[in-house]
Design a protein around this nucleic acid. Structure first.
Lengths: 144, 144
DNA sequence: CTACATGCAAAGCATTTGCATAGCC
DNA sequence: GGCTATGCAAATGCTTTGCATGTAG
């Protein structure tokens, strides 16, 4: 259950003040499935806080990143994208429609475990992106 | 064998003119193990072509990316990094010393194959980053 | 009450673009 | 020789920073 109080706890445990703006940004990132850009978070947050500034969004995301609560994904195109899902997963990036979907699968954990330590490299976090064509786009194109 | 003529061929086959600057940039990216930034490529290229501009480096890298000859990796920190290794592999990124090493392993290909098609998503290219601590840094820290 | 967060504006940088000149094919 | 590439400078756009004001703890 994701609730207001849970966001407050997360912020406090990470040593930050639980301001209304931070709670809103954390909430947006936690509930989003679309790996939003900072600009998208900013526009969403403005619905509740019309005076919030982009600087606050950037500073808050920076804070959440340092606390390990948000992952930053830099893609082609310059804009950084963010997600609050820090569990191992695959980002499926459709080159046709641009959508990014998370894929959770036990085999991802096993795959990572295989390489952790074996080569002398200790894995602490990871990022796996698959670029290709999603199901919907393939169906629309007649599986060409 | 990577040679001058091979770089010329690559450029011609991709439909581009084989200028001395492009050959140099392709050579730098092909021989580098360090996933250089555009700025690093620029400084390296200036050794041979003191008048080369950053714009030419960016335009050439863009060209090589479109031809599938160079992969762009956007990391934390804003600067994009580039590599000419387009075969499936894992980027081992050491959070202590900042070095990025390529890890080639058959299990990577098998891992990708598992997910291609199964979920309806057709994988065309991929990027796998492992963040952690490399062997050297762990040894220096006494395996803490 | 005090230290930290917000929000505004301005600055910082990586990257892109426009255009005249130069060079490959 | 024609068409594409180079290189300079200026522009663009994302992100960061400085600072005065506001607010959580």
């Amino acid at each position: 259950m994701t609730s207001h109080n849970e966001y407050v706890d997360i912020l406090h445990k990470s040593g930050f003040k639980a301001t209304a703006q931070r709670i809103e940004i954390l909430s947006i990132l936690s509930q989003s499935q679309t790996h939003p850009t900072a600009e998208e978070v900013y526009h969403e947050a403005r619905k509740k806080f019309p005076t919030i500034s982009a600087a606050t969004v950037y500073k808050t995301i920076q804070t959440l990143k340092e606390a390990g609560r948000v992952q930053q994904l830099a893609f082609y195109g310059g804009k950084a994208r963010f997600e609050a899902n820090v569990e191992p997963h695959i980002n499926l990036i459709c080159l046709t429609c641009g959508r990014i979907q998370d894929l959770f699968d036990m085999r991802v954990n096993e795959f990572i475990k295989q390489f952790s330590g074996g080569s002398g490299f200790k894995v602490e976090s990871q990022r796996i992106d698959f670029y290709g064509t999603c199901k919907q786009c393939r169906e629309q194109a007649g599986f060409q």
